[in-house]
């Protein structure tokens, strides 16, 4: 009898050290029944990608408040692809201006959540769009 669980990772690439939001999100994901790996702040794109692969997550959520998402987020997407792990659903969060959405979608991101998005909305999106892989 199989017992599937959704596994997600929340990572903060870049230099900003404000991880209160990421921690709130991690708790909310746990309460939704997901297994959440939290990697902390100041992650390089390489660390984000290799941790996601080592943990076999179904979704990787990147959060960045410093504005460096333009470079860092696509970089993670590229690294995952290089390692054959582009089936991991990529989601971005943080202070991201509207004009940056399309380039991120083009880079492979499936959703972007900006501050103020209700947590329920994010959880519902995950439940609909992220499935445990087999």
């Amino acid at each position: 009898m199989s017992e599937r669980k959704i596994r997600v990772m929340v990572a903060k690439p870049g230099l900003d050290g404000h991880d209160r939001g990421a921690r709130v999100l991690a708790r909310c994901f746990r309460d939704a029944g997901f297994e959440v790996i939290y990697t902390g702040c100041h992650q390089t794109p390489e660390q984000c990608a290799s941790a996601a692969i080592q943990e076999d997550v179904d979704m990787l959520g990147l959060s960045c408040l410093s504005g460096a998402h333009r470079y860092l987020f696509p970089q993670v997407a590229k690294l995952l692809k290089e390692q054959g792990a582009d089936d991991i659903v990529l989601v971005g969060g943080g202070i991201i201006p509207d004009q940056d959405f399309q380039p991120l979608y083009d880079a492979g991101f499936k959703a972007i959540f900006t501050p103020g998005t209700p947590l329920d909305t994010i959880v519902d999106w995950i439940k609909t769009n992220v499935k445990p892989r087999s």
Partner: peptide
């Protein structure tokens, strides 16, 4: 209660991720 979990040990070991 929910079957979910926060797996936080990895935070302390991330310098070896690469």
């Amino acid at each position: 209660f929910t079957g979910g979990a926060i797996l936080g040990d990895r935070i302390r070991m991330q310098r070896h991720a690469e």
